[in-house]
Nucleic acid binder design. Structure first.
Lengths: 161, 161
DNA sequence: AGTGAAACGGACCGAGCAGTCCGCTTAGAG
DNA sequence: CTCTAAGCGGACTGCTCGGTCCGTTTCACT
């Protein structure tokens, strides 16, 4: 790949990340291109549709979550592992409008399977140790994440077993 | 007002209520008109802009909330009054996408002042009775409402003092 | 430096949106 | 029944958006 093409690709991805995080998925491709300093034709050459661009940005975000999940799984204390991951995800959602608005889309991205598996394991451990209420499934608990962005302590207090 | 005009006005408001609740504020005026069974010119004769139509729908929703607030204030037990109102609002938000998407707009509608005043009083009573945690303001607590739509019990457990 | 392929970006297109307008229809008073 | 003003709805406009296309520029290899 030519050097200028690689540079523009990075600029576009960075701009898209910022635009979608701040403004949500309805930010126009023109706006992304403007922030990247390229024509919008350049964006569409790399990503055939706006949806493909969004997928790329969401994918990078999910990559970060996979790392967080691995860190949480290596934690010894079941509650600390669960709560730390929960807080980190809540913070990620708080800082990224696109993530909240694209919940369903994320479910279809490959990284999400890894994140979900880790989340289920963290919940299983905490519930087995009786530090997490057992009347909710892991899926239900993680539906609370977008909610927990502002006041994670309140939600975690409610979840404690 | 002519009888047919009144009938169409009711149809439009009903259709708008349903459309915005199910599909959010981005549902087109054409869609509302179609569901009401009128031309979209008829919608714009009654409401000069789409925003005015949305305000009318949100206003009716807030009217319902005012009634809920009055009911909650007449409750004897401070926790029951607060929790009942909290649950009812959470349910209302869960059933209405437009309400969630128009938080800021609602703040400018006249009914909201009444609802907020009642909410503050309910929180004050519950906090004075030491049944509600005191490290959050009333405004902060009610920011949790859109979150609480799916699992209000978890949130209320977290809020209990 | 010369050259050909790769990359660029803005003009362009069609679709869908909010909002306007006007010729036709209909309610309902006299 | 007649007549008129109120009401109607769909054609129309202007705008923004996602996506395409092509003449021009730039890279990088020889």
């Amino acid at each position: 790949m030519r050097a200028d093409a690689q540079r523009n690709l990075d600029l576009v991805l960075g701009a898209a990340q910022e635009c979608f995080a701040e403004g949500g998925v309805d930010v126009s491709v023109d706006e992304v291109a403007r922030r990247a300093g390229v024509g919008h034709g350049t964006v569409f050459r790399r990503f055939p549709t706006k949806e493909a661009l969004l997928d790329a940005v969401l994918g990078k975000e999910l990559d970060r979550m996979v790392l967080l999940a691995q860190g949480a799984l290596s934690e010894d204390d079941p509650w600390d592992g669960f709560a730390g991951f929960f807080r980190a995800l809540a913070d990620g959602y708080a800082r990224n409008r696109a993530l909240v608005e694209s919940k369903e889309r994320c479910l279809e991205l490959p990284q999400m399977a890894v994140v979900q598996e880790a989340a289920h394991e963290l919940v299983r451990r905490a519930q087995k140790a009786r530090v997490l209420r057992r009347d909710l499934t892991a899926d239900e608990i993680f539906e609370l994440i977008p909610a927990a962005s502002r006041f994670p302590d309140v939600i975690l207090d409610g979840l404690r077993g």
